[in-house]
Amino acid sequence: MSGALASASSPRPSSRRLVVAVAALLVISIGVQVVRDRGWQPYEPATPVLWFQSGSLLQRLSLGFQNVVADTYWIRAVVYYGGKRRSALNGRDFSLLDPLLTFVTTLDPKFKVAYRFGAIFLTEAYPNGPGRPDLAVALLQRGLAATPTAWEYAHDIGFVYYWWLEDYKAAAHWFAKGGQLPGAPSWLAPLAATTLAQGGDRQSSRLLWSQLGESEIEWIRRNAQHRLQQLHAMDVVDELNRLSQRFTTREGRPARDWRDLIVGERLRGTPVDSTGVPFELDPATGRVDVSRGSALFPLPWPGRGGPPAP
């Protein structure tokens, strides 16, 4: 058989050389793209316009594929938000986030993840997010209107009030409301009372975040762990500020660097936060805070200022 094949005078031509040429051309095309992408970013107009101004129009155009379109828009929202967070500081404009989330939840009003993550995205303070807790509350309220039994949304609304808006009365109201909904965990109703009594205190915050740390959704769990780390860092910062203050009172001048405190206050080496980044000491005032380079920055101080003066 192989002998007969070999004797064929007009066999099928081999394309090996052409295949090599195709591979070479593809490599060149990658090179061209790499060079081009150095000087090019997809353009976004200063006043971005979405093709569809209303979710209901898009819903009608989806022709029965609402859920697929919703999923697509959700992915776009996540990519949009994530891409913005990674972009240069001055290019961060989150203005399309809320419209995108509105599209997603209009197309698929039961899209739980979109409400819960969407709210987290929206509340994050600039430069990590648009810092719009008001929009987050509105989004979650639409979610609650679509699924009135979802205690998670009530809890999340309460949470936004508690953490971002520091309105403990409203937070307690929403926690209590969520606690009455079917399937709500037992800790939610007592949380309302705690919130009202000890609003803003670090211990109740820690309780709140620990509960979220038990969430079945990994992203929420990770976020909660991050917040718990921040709370811990705040405790450490308070303690360091106390030492620094003591140094200032004794020496009549603020500590210039950690060495002053290591020598004067018996600090055991340069203190680092839980991500391994050293805390920052302001030589002019002696005030301590987490480093701007730390993943924990900025810490959620009450009033979002800096660490309180001791």
């Binding site: 094949l5 064929a8 005078s9 007009s10």
Partner: peptide, 19 residues
């Protein structure tokens, strides 16, 4: 006409291979 390639064997037209 070499619209097909043979599995085996040869063909010539006017003394030339069909390809």
């Amino acid at each position: 006409m070499q619209l097909l390639y043979p599995t085996s064997g040869t063909a010539r037209i006017l003394g030339r291979p069909v390809g």
